[in-house]
Amino acid sequence: MSLSSAADVVLEYGGRRILDGLDLTIETGDQYAVTGRSGSGKTTLLLVMAGLLPPTRGRATLGVPSREISYVPQTPSLIPELSALDNAALGLRFRGIAPVHAAEQAREALVLLGLGDATDALPSELSGGMQQRVAIARAVVLAPRLLLADEPTGTLDRSAGAQVLAVLRDLATRHETALLVATHDPEIAALFPHQLALADGRVVA
């Protein structure tokens, strides 16, 4: 089943062409690593595939409702006034999950990501890497059909990075969640079945 597809997508932003004739279809269970240098269009590709950024030309189509798609930005995007647990549970709460159950699921995800001791901490009390893991936990607990993560391990050490990848792949296995992960680390990219190499907005490999 096609979750998101792009056909001959061109995207211009600020007078510059970011994506140039992109074609991509993501189906259930797909796992893609998007690589490329800084400015190659990785983040823009993720935004287009998440349905958050309409293309200038071409067609981008979502095959599932937008709330079945989770997007994890490159920089931590936590609500600064809420604890790690509340942040992680927030998506569930918006879906009407009872507070107690939402908190249970969020706590489990945080424990899996090594944040069992930091559930009550505010984002400002966490390191950048810990904040990123909370953001991933928040996305994971939603069990989306498609998860797009922008440099999810960029601010993490090797061990924490491996932990995050393990959680993402477990999610993909258990819920057949499709993954589209942007990374500049070839070692991480090598762990994914599919790899897209971007340069100047074009898929070069």
Binding site: L52, S66, R67, S70, Y71, P73, S77, L78, I79, P80, L90, G91, F94, R95, R138, L142
Partner: peptide
């Protein structure tokens, strides 16, 4: 603003 964008990404109506 950023909080509102984030909650929108989380599926908030």
């Amino acid at each position: 603003r950023r909080t509102l964008v984030v909650v929108a990404l989380l599926g908030a109506t």
